[in-house]
């Protein structure tokens, strides 16, 4: 799932200055599941923005709505954007892009898109995939070194590992975990496999092939 988080209100208010009627649009897929873009957050953000706007002596009318998925043109086409002069998207970057492309109305992001993550419990996700386009999880016991190792090292832990912790101190060392899991699965020999430098063009190629609308990052 794409994990997202709300921007600071100041930044959003700044984007919306001068707008008359703004549609706050949630996304009931990843953003809702990430507890940042469902109906509840749309309603909460409308209230927060109303407070923010009125304290600045401005007037902007806010209306709320939710699409099942902002990143699908059919859902966007079915949306009612009558008399709306800006959309504040509570979706990921793909949602913002799709809304902007389909509606012709200025679209602003209310969220920052963080990573592709897996749930760790209530309101907690861990980055598990960086959409690099050339997956090595088969050799790394399902633990992504590109994502989970701070340096994206493909061949084992750096010298910064500290009792199994990353030198950044904010996560366990991915390579220690990979080593442990490979050993526990009797696949210790996999560790010796030398991974060549990554093909950084791989992700782009897929994007290009599938949509013919991508481009280099």
């Amino acid at each position: 799932m794409v994990v997202v988080t709300a921007k600071q209100l100041d930044e959003i208010v700044h984007m919306l200055a001068g707008r008359r009627r703004v549609l706050l649009l949630g996304c009931n897929t990843c953003a809702a599941v990430a507890l940042a873009g469902g109906d509840r957050e749309v309603e909460t953000m409308i209230q927060a923005l109303q407070l923010a706007i009125s304290r600045r002596g401005m007037t902007v009318e806010f209306v709320g709505g939710v699409l099942q998925r902002q990143c699908e043109p059919e859902y966007v086409e079915a949306m009612d954007a009558e008399d709306i002069d800006a959309i504040l998207s509570l979706g990921c970057g793909a949602g913002v892009a799709m809304l902007a492309a389909q509606t012709g109305i200025p679209v602003y992001p209310a969220l920052d898109t963080l990573f592709i993550g897996a749930a760790q419990g209530l309101g907690s996700w861990r980055a598990e995939c960086s959409a690099c386009g050339s997956c090595v999880l088969g050799e790394t016991a399902g633990i992504c070194p590109v994502t989970r190792c701070a340096k994206g090292i493909l061949n084992g832990p750096c010298g910064g590992v500290n009792d199994g912790e990353c030198e950044l101190g904010d996560r366990p060392c991915a390579w220690v975990e990979i080593h442990e899991r490979l050993e526990s699965q009797g696949r210790g020999a996999s560790f010796a496999h030398e991974n060549p430098p990554k093909d950084d063009s791989a992700g782009e190629m897929y994007q290009w092939d599938l949509s013919a609308k991508g481009g280099s990052r």
Binding site: A150, K151, G152, I153, L154, N155, G156, C158, G160, E167, L168, E194, N195, P196, P197, K198, D200
Partner: peptide
Amino acid sequence: DHVRVGDHREAKAVFDLESVQ
């Protein structure tokens, strides 16, 4: 060492390659 431990913490850490490579 990672850029986060240094004096340009906001820098993009490249790591296009690593030591073995």
